[in-house]
């Protein structure tokens, strides 16, 4: 004769008083820290104090609970049988029979089935429209062109016009066309080398007036700004993945993962001594993409 409910065995606490006191202290500390937290918050808050008090508040509850669950209640170990996951053969057969029944009942009207599939499929496709049409424009020429145009006035980040005396030899400045200051795509790095009218490559004889050379600042690897100029070696370094470009040979990649040189911007000084672009970039700037070819 047995009762299920009332007869649950109450085991004595495995560890006695010591554990009880410890758990009590943990909860007490938590309460005190919570009060402290409330006071700290009330008087205006202080991150370090809040962090420490939160630690004590949460840690007190946590350690107290773990200790209670570990030392004040029976740990067994108890054993339990695993139930078999897979169903009896008869269950599977019954399921298959039901599936079959439904399929046969539907199967007679296969044309309707195809129509249902078509309607749902079409509706699903329609749902892609907002993603394809409204989320963003189609690239078109956005990747092959930059805001740079013929005769664009070249200015620094502060909008000041670049003249023959803007940079010392070894100097470096980020420049933009005057109508796109700060532009992410038009950003160009201007360096001045010692050699007057330096030709980086054949065909670029007029591109480096008075030692001024302009290159796209967007790394051809992953698009970071190639922001560090080592004057001694006359190399540009991309700080993201350490691609190194040699300025005198036309910012050719000499080290690191960058696969292509930085495109060079043809520039000239106008009659007033202001720096201008001879034209836009002659090739796409920045990292590669499928259509680039």
């Amino acid at each position: 004769m047995t009762q299920l409910h009332e007869s649950a065995a109450v085991d004595a606490a495995p560890k006695g008083k010591g554990a009880e006191v410890f758990v009590g202290i943990c909860f007490l500390l938590s309460v005190l820290a919570t009060i402290g937290l409330a006071v700290t918050y009330w008087v205006g808050g202080q991150p370090q104090v809040e962090g420490i008090l939160l630690f004590v508040t949460l840690g007190g509850i946590g350690i107290g609970m773990v200790a209670w669950g570990k030392y004040l209640v029976p740990q067994g170990p108890f054993v339990q049988e695993r139930e078999v996951l897979k169903s009896e053969i008869v269950e599977r057969q019954a399921m298959l029979a039901s599936l079959d029944r439904g399929q046969k009942q539907l199967g007679r009207r296969s044309f309707l089935g195809k129509m249902l599939g078509a309607s749902i499929g079409l509706f699903g496709a329609i749902n892609l429209f907002p993603f394809l049409r409204s989320l963003g424009p189609v690239p078109k020429k956005a990747l092959t062109t930059t805001p740079w145009k013929k005769d664009a006035l070249i200015v620094g980040p502060d909008g000041r016009v670049v003249t023959t005396s803007t940079l010392e030899v070894g100097g470096v400045l980020t420049v933009f066309p005057s109508y796109d200051v700060g532009g992410a795509i038009s950003q160009t790095i201007l360096v001045r080398v010692a050699n007057e009218n330096w030709t980086t490559r054949p065909g670029r004889e007029t591109w480096g007036p008075q030692g001024y050379l302009a290159f796209s600042k967007i790394c051809t690897h992953a698009g970071c700004p190639v922001g560090l100029y080592q004057e001694l070696t006359q190399q540009l370094l991309c700080p993201c993945h350490q691609s190194l470009f040699d300025v005198l040979t036309g910012a050719t990649q000499v080290f690191g993962p960058a696969p292509r040189p930085l495109p060079q911007l043809p520039i000239y000084f106008d009659a007033n001594g202001n720096l201008r672009a001879q034209s836009g970039y002659l090739e796409p700037v920045g990292p590669g993409y499928w259509e680039r070819g």
Partner: peptide, 17 residues
């Protein structure tokens, strides 16, 4: 109650850290 207290307490310990 053993596992519930240990695991529940462990949540608070994680939060405390």
């Amino acid at each position: 109650p053993a596992y519930a207290f240990q695991a529940g307490g462990f949540f608070f310990v994680t939060a405390a850290v």
